[in-house]
Amino acid sequence: MIDDFLLRALLAGMGLMLAAGPLGVFVIWRRMAYVGDATSHAAILGVALALATSLPVIVGTVFIAATMALLVAGLSNRGRATDTVLGVLAHSALALGLVAVALIPGARIDLSAYLFGDILAVSWRDLILVWGGAFLVLGLLVWRWHALLTTTVSGELAVASGLNPRREGLILTLSLALVVAVSLKIVGALLVAAMLIVPAASARAFSRSPEAMAAVAVGFGWLAVAGGLGASLRFDTPAGPTIVAAAAILFAASLGLPRQKP
């Protein structure tokens, strides 16, 4: 019989990956890795905002993460967003967030919980939030799947087919903000981007179609969550980073396998 807290942790991680898998493949197809970084780092600023205004943390993080995601996406649309600008935004957002949290009088929070997550402390209420957010994002992605894929392949072809690449991009951006917000508690701001990118990257070698890649990314994510949780118990290591480390090991293993040939 597995412990209650462990079950919750497992379910939380699996719920997160349900959204992070399909979203992650878009992040790597569209080379939005830095957008993921900037958005997740900005989430700390969202925590500060929520504390300052006594709003629920999830509201603050969704708000700030969405603002950041829109800002970064807006810059990339104009073709001005060099790696440099994105890097500056990502790191400043994190630093500002940490400074802001420290400035709030009376706030006594365990920042490391937001930076690295605390999946073992996930409550049933958190679980509902995670699965709710994940289903919302998954629903959005499934609904717009063909349009998103067309836009990713070529913006010009998408426009010629009557699609609006900007709108599709916005859907991804907002999904990203939502995933970041719900996963803050699980893996933390610093590791969210990793759970988006690493399982998706591992999935490439096993996929011949976009849909398969999204599904395989979810599978790898689940493996990483289960393996990481197990290892963190066994070796008494922090759960969030151990999950990401497990994902990284899976990625390294996927590199060793021969690439799927046509």
């Binding site: 790597i28 197809w29 080379r31 990713t152 392949v153 990257a201 490439r204 996929s207 011949r208 179609s209 976009p210 398969a212 890649m213 799927q260 046509p262």
Partner: peptide
């Protein structure tokens, strides 16, 4: 088309 996107 980025090779990271599997697409026949």
């Amino acid at each position: 088309i980025d090779p990271v996107l599997p697409l026949t």
